[in-house]
């Protein structure tokens, strides 16, 4: 039982099993995204739930992040030519990194948890088995619409977050730090390139996929009643958050190397 080799073996086997299950699950989910029939009604519903209802959370996060970024750069950086530095760094920081990552983490907490809890409850009350007996593939009916909805809506959320984040920086800079608003905006627009925004949006599409996939995967495989659903929810949020940060690192190193 406590033989170190046995422990290592068990851990390796469990990890491999989990990776195998996840790969199979991803394949099943994605293959049903591309194969007809398509459930547009469900897709619309999920886009509302994942995208529209996440707007307030994402907007508030972006606003305060932009504001605090402006303050920190002003206090920490050189205060002599801060007027150009604050605007540029806020814009770059928000569009390249903080917008996508913070919006991704907030959506993972809000949406990933709710997907896992919903599908987990459907699993333990046999509703997912019931779908099968009613000639409806649960991957097609439950997983595919959530994957597509997240991949479409998270980038839109991040685009809105980018704008609100920059506005947060602008508000703090003009109200608290007595910057000139026109100069601030001119600096933002001059230094910001299209690539800064698009790289963030590409990242956020990947984050959306990760969030929906983790929510669905852990929900689908939950077992053992209320406690199992709770565990699935926690796992969905934790794994999605870690994968978002890891994927962010990998994508940043790929995108900005070229």
């Amino acid at each position: 039982m406590w033989n170190p080799f046995a422990i290592i073996g068990r851990v390796v086997l469990a990890t491999l099993e989990e990776i195998g299950q996840l790969s199979l699950f991803t394949w099943n989910g994605v293959s049903h995204v591309v194969r007809p029939p398509y459930f547009f009604r469900l897709l619309g519903q999920q886009m509302m739930r994942i995208g529209y209802f996440s707007l307030p959370v994402v907007a508030m996060t972006a606003f305060f992040t932009g504001g605090v970024l402006a303050l920190q750069i002003y206090y920490g950086g050189s205060q002599y030519n801060s007027e150009s530095i604050v605007a540029t760094i806020v814009a770059l920081g928000i569009t390249r990194e903080l917008g996508p990552v913070l919006a991704g983490l907030m959506v993972a907490g809000r949406v990933g948890a709710s997907i896992a809890a919903e599908l987990g409850t459907m699993r333990v009350t046999e509703q997912i088995d019931a779908l099968t007996t009613l000639s409806t593939n649960p991957y097609k009916y439950l997983v595919a619409p959530r994957l597509v909805a997240a991949v479409i809506t998270v980038p839109i959320l991040v685009l809105i977050a980018d704008i609100i984040g920059v506005m947060g920086g602008y508000m703090v800079a003009t109200k608290n730090l007595d910057f000139n608003g026109g100069v601030y905006l001119a600096n933002t627009i001059d230094f910001l390139k299209t690539d800064d925004v698009t790289s963030g949006l590409i990242k956020s599409a990947v984050f959306g996929f990760i969030i929906a996939l983790m929510g669905c995967f852990h929900g689908f495989n939950s077992k053992g009643g209320a406690q199992g659903v709770g565990r699935a929810t926690t796992n969905a949020v934790v794994t999605a958050s870690i994968l978002i940060l890891a994927a962010d690192y990998v994508m940043t190193s790929l995108i900005f190397k070229s």
Partner: peptide, 8 residues
């Protein structure tokens, strides 16, 4: 199904 398994 045992618990009904109705879609709530």
């Amino acid at each position: 199904f045992q618990g009904g398994a109705l879609f709530d």
